[in-house]
Simulated scan of single mutants.
Amino acid sequence: MKEFVPLRILSVNPSSVGASSYILLLEADNTQALRFPIVIGSQEAQSISVYLEKIQPSRPLTHDLCVNLLSHSNVSILKVLITDFKDGIFYANLEIEKDGEVTQVDARPSDSIALAIRLDIPILISEKLLHDICIPEDELLDELEEEYDLIEKIPSKRSKVELESLLDKALQEENYEEAAKLRDEIEKL
């Protein structure tokens, strides 16, 4: 059987690839040198960020709903296994238990991770795959620094009061993606 390594989430940041793409940066739990990014969609990025930043949405998000449904069933998710990377796409399985029987269900890594953080279950990757896909730390830091330096050099043209008002409005409208951006802009001031 393959040896699996636990992962932790380092960050979720907008991608320069596209407006609806985000970079989920993961790292091996036992070393800071083994990191890799996964490109995820805006909904999954929002779901992960809302939970990590302890933002309380007024209504349950999709992954919250899934967790609520699981709590009323005889199915438990035991762990997330990131199993493969082919043609630029990551693959994952949810290891589930139902009536004492353990099986695996195919799932997108982004959805699996959004569930894992809510259920406090391990996110794992095969050791071989981790070593195959990892970007050396110095290269990764150079890439991220270049991408985010461009973002940070754009000064805000709005006042703190205006930004706080827009943040309140975004939260009331459940636009958590915009709320996170506004919060970051306020912090830069």
Rank of each mutant, 00 (worst) to 15 (best):
R183E: 09
Q172D: 13
M1A: 15
L130G: 09
I117R: 08
E162P: 04
L115A: 08
V12K: 02
E97G: 04
V12F: 00
A107R: 12
Q32I: 13
I96E: 01
P155N: 13
Y148Q: 13
E101F: 12
V39R: 05
V75Q: 06
R158Y: 01
G100E: 03
S112Q: 14
E178T: 10
P60I: 14
S15R: 04
V161M: 01
P6L: 07
S49M: 06
E177L: 15
H72L: 07
H63N: 08
E95V: 15
F4C: 11
I38R: 14
L81W: 03
D84K: 08
I113S: 04
F4D: 08
S156M: 07
V67F: 08
T31N: 06
S159E: 01
Q46V: 10
D87N: 15
L166Y: 01
A19S: 13
L10C: 09
E101P: 06
I125C: 09
C134Q: 14
F4M: 15
G88I: 00
K79P: 01
A45C: 04
I96G: 05
L171G: 03
I121V: 10
I82S: 03
I125H: 05
D111N: 09
S58H: 11
I117T: 05
L25R: 09
A92D: 07
L150C: 12
P37G: 09
K169W: 03
K169R: 10
C66T: 14
A92C: 11
S76K: 13
L7N: 00
